[in-house]
Amino acid sequence: MDPQDIREDPAGAATDVSALRKTVVEFEEDIADGLTGGYYDLGTDLNLNAIAIGMGLANIKYDPETFPAIVYHLDDGRPTVIIFEDGHLSVIDADSADAVQEAVTITAERMGELGLYQGDAPVEDDIAVTEIDA
């Protein structure tokens, strides 16, 4: 999977957590070694430029010319959430299913607080969790 593949099929990239993890490493972004990931569809398009600025550049890597999504590290440094323009969130490097669900919820809430996402809070049963192939 390369950045062009992600541009053409962000939903596919969000659900293919193992391949996405490898692409993020190729994007020269440090990630931890958690073996659990997941994804969730917010159901709306997002303004990635506004999100990158609003959520704090210290925890974000965003270079749309190189990689068409935001790489967002939660404050504790783990897990990492990949935010796609089409509203898909993909979680990599989590240690558990609970960590995946918490990362999705925290990310959606932060975007909501900034007025950048007006949808409902994620429902735990709708957050897909998967094991990442190491």
Rank of each mutant, 00 (worst) to 15 (best):
I53W: 07
T107V: 06
D125E: 15
Q118A: 14
R78M: 11
A97P: 00
T23Q: 14
D30V: 12
A97S: 14
A108D: 01
L114P: 02
A99M: 12
P122W: 01
E109Y: 10
E26L: 13
I132F: 03
A97Q: 07
L20I: 03
R21S: 09
D45Q: 13
R110H: 11
D126R: 11
D5W: 03
A121N: 11
Q4G: 01
Y62Q: 08
D9P: 05
R7D: 06
M1D: 04
A99P: 00
P10G: 07
I106L: 12
A121C: 01
A52P: 04
A97H: 03
E131G: 10
P79Q: 02
A69P: 04
V129H: 02
D86K: 08
D45A: 13
L114R: 10
A52H: 02
R21P: 00
A134P: 10
D5C: 03
D126I: 03
E28L: 12
G43I: 10
V17W: 04
E8C: 05
Q118E: 15
V17Q: 00
V25W: 05
Y39K: 00
T44I: 10
R7T: 08
I83Y: 01
M1G: 11
Y39Q: 08
A103C: 09
R78F: 03
G38K: 01
R7W: 04
G112D: 06
V129S: 02
G43M: 05
D45R: 14
G43A: 05
E131K: 09
P68Y: 06
I70E: 01
A58I: 13
V123R: 14
T23G: 06
D63R: 12
R78T: 08
S96C: 06
E102Y: 09
Q4I: 12
L116S: 07
D86S: 14
T107G: 02
D133H: 10
R21Q: 11
A103Q: 00
A50M: 11
A13S: 13
G34A: 04
K61N: 12
L35Q: 12
V71M: 04
I83H: 03
E29V: 15
D5Q: 09
V24Q: 02
P79D: 05
A19E: 12
E102C: 03
D2N: 15
V91L: 03
E131S: 10
H88P: 01
M55E: 07
I6A: 01
Q4E: 15
I132E: 00
G112Q: 12
L20Q: 03
Q101V: 08
G38T: 05
Q118R: 11
G43W: 08
M111R: 03
E29C: 11
D9R: 10
A52G: 09
V71G: 00
H73V: 00
R78Y: 05
H73F: 02
L57S: 14
D41M: 06
D76C: 04
A134T: 09
D120W: 02
K22E: 14
V129Q: 02
N59G: 05
A32L: 12
D2T: 08
G34H: 01
D98W: 07
T15Y: 02
P122K: 07
D133M: 10
N49Y: 10
D75F: 05
D86A: 08
A11W: 00
A121R: 13
E65F: 08
E113D: 15
T23W: 01
